[in-house]
Simulated scan of single mutants.
Amino acid sequence: MSSSQSPSSALDASASPTSLGTTTLETIMALSLFGERSLAAASPANPLTAVARWIRKAQAARTRRAALSALLELDADRLGDLGISRQDVVAAMVAPAHAGRMLNTARARSARS
């Protein structure tokens, strides 16, 4: 603190958001309620991150389709050994987001009977 500054002005300057390394926007965002996050705050800042996420999702979907297609190539006896039927695999292909859950349910149902 310099001799020309009063103690209260030095305190005010040190308490400002910009002197702490934050911007006014960051301060406003920090003061907003948790449930009031804007869409801009929820989206990735780097567009490459969004592209990389899209590529990972596309690769996972392609892998899932290939695995389900491979299951369809198996004969009924082999599918029965796995605890699933051809209809279960077709149903999983129709709803790919829930494919794993659907096949696990079918296996559990088959194990009980």
Rank of each mutant, 00 (worst) to 15 (best):
A67W: 09
S69H: 14
Q87F: 09
T63N: 10
L48H: 12
F34E: 13
D81C: 09
V89R: 04
E73R: 11
S69C: 10
A30N: 12
I55R: 15
R65N: 08
V89L: 00
A66P: 06
S32K: 15
A30C: 08
D88C: 07
A70S: 07
A42K: 11
R53W: 11
L71F: 04
S32Y: 09
A45N: 09
I28P: 06
L72G: 04
Q59F: 08
V89Y: 00
F34C: 10
R86T: 00
D88N: 02
R37P: 03
D75K: 02
A40M: 12
A40H: 07
K57L: 15
A42G: 05
S38M: 01
A66H: 11
A70I: 00
Q87N: 13
D88Q: 02
E36F: 14
G80D: 06
A60M: 10
G83I: 04
L68Y: 00
A41M: 14
L72R: 07
T24M: 11
T63E: 11
T27Q: 15
I28T: 01
R37D: 03
Q87S: 13
I28N: 01
A30M: 12
A70M: 03
R65I: 09
T63Y: 08
R56D: 13
A66M: 11
T24P: 08
L68I: 00
A41Y: 14
S43W: 14
L79V: 04
R56G: 04
T63V: 07
R56W: 10
G80Q: 04
L33P: 08
R65T: 03
Q59I: 10
L39V: 06
L31E: 13
A60I: 06
A66D: 02
L82W: 00
T49Y: 09
I84T: 01
T23W: 03
E73V: 02
L25V: 04
F34Q: 15
A41S: 12
E36N: 11
L48E: 15
D77Y: 07
A61F: 05
L31W: 12
Q87G: 08
D88E: 01
A61H: 08
T27V: 03
T23Q: 00
R64H: 08
A70C: 04
V89E: 03
T63S: 13
S85A: 07
G83L: 00
D75C: 02
L82H: 01
T63K: 10
L71H: 01
R56T: 07
T49L: 14
R56L: 14
S43N: 09
G83Y: 02
R65M: 06
P47S: 05
A66I: 09
P47D: 04
S69Q: 12
R62V: 11
A40L: 11
I55N: 12
R53S: 07
A58T: 09
I28Y: 04
L74I: 02
R65K: 06
T27K: 15
A40Y: 09
K57D: 15
S32M: 15
R86H: 11
L48N: 15
T49I: 09
A76Y: 04
P47K: 00
T24W: 12
E36A: 13
T24S: 06
D81M: 15
E73W: 07
P44E: 05
D81R: 14
S38H: 05
K57G: 13
A58C: 12
A58I: 07
S38K: 02
A52K: 11
S69V: 02
L39C: 02
L74V: 02
L72M: 10
L33A: 15
L68K: 02
T27A: 15
L82E: 00
I84Q: 00
T49H: 11
R78E: 13
L31G: 03
A67S: 10
G80M: 01
